[in-house]
Design a protein around this nucleic acid. Sequence first.
DNA 1: AAAATACTTGACAAATTTGCTCAGGTATTT
DNA 2: AAATACCTGAGCAAATTTGTCAAGTATTTT
Lengths: 149, 149
Amino acid sequence: MLRLSTRGQYGVRAMFEIARGWPHRPVSLKEVSRRQDVSVAYLEQLLGKLRRAGLVVSVKGPGGGYLLSRPPERISIGSILKELEGPVALTACVQDPRKGCVRVEGCVTSLLWRALGQRIEQFLDTITLADLLNTNALRRQVRKEAQSA
Amino acid sequence: MLRLSTRGQYGVRAMFEIARGWPHRPVSLKEVSRRQDVSVAYLEQLLGKLRRAGLVVSVKGPGGGYLLSRPPERISIGSILKELEGPVALTACVQDPRKGCVRVEGCVTSLLWRALGQRIEQFLDTITLADLLNTNALRRQVRKEAQSA
DNA sequence: AAAATACTTGACAAATTTGCTCAGGTATTT
DNA sequence: AAATACCTGAGCAAATTTGTCAAGTATTTT
């Protein structure tokens, strides 16, 4: 249950590769494709969204590629996933209040989904690309999150 | 992102209704259907799985229905979802280690998905049907979980 | 015994989502 | 003008989801 689609997975991995070029070197999709084993065509689709969302800027022409639009510590994993897969929305009634619960009793569970969704978002918003660039920092971060739970 | 399928949602709602009959009164799918607005045929599919998993027992004949197999405080939301939707598995490489990451770098993200998955499971295993039966208890529970995060 | 209630199983089908590819563009540098 | 690389939208096959349907079996009531 709760599978993350490849859009999100590849998107984060691509952003990780692009983050490695920060702050000067644009990273081409060809390079991302080679390192992460994802087709250029698919990456184009994903990066288009991330560019329109303002997470990266593109540099055209030879030697071009993508650059982070701001420092890696200011780009959370959550912000990437949100653009590629939409907001965390475990159920329809949480995402869209108009699609209300059929019965009052149903809302008891909606409280649950809402609470879980918030926890997931909080986790994903806490981890940034900077953490991915430094595995040790990531381990620390994850442990901190875990022990507090 | 991270949508919960209707199988899981309806399953939990159905278990909530069945829990209301605890410990004597079997609750029929007809009743669950009426209260939760889900077709009997679909519920049959879901409850069959939950019965085979040992979460409920069935009582045939008139006045029959389903009963929890153990007290509501010993049936977690996680155990229900696990039967209906399989284990939390955000990515293939977390679920099945043989489907390893393509590159060493990819494993950096796998650490992330693993950590998030664990947090989700821990949350879902903490909340039980007993909490759903008592909205106040649920609110307390959710708040406790939240503040510790 | 017959009728009514209710669970049981497996097959199947429509709708949706996923996971891409492809063709043809545009912009920039050498 | 040639090469590099981004950009866009359409399209499509496979998988998954979200159910329905038919034909049972078991139990109780009359």
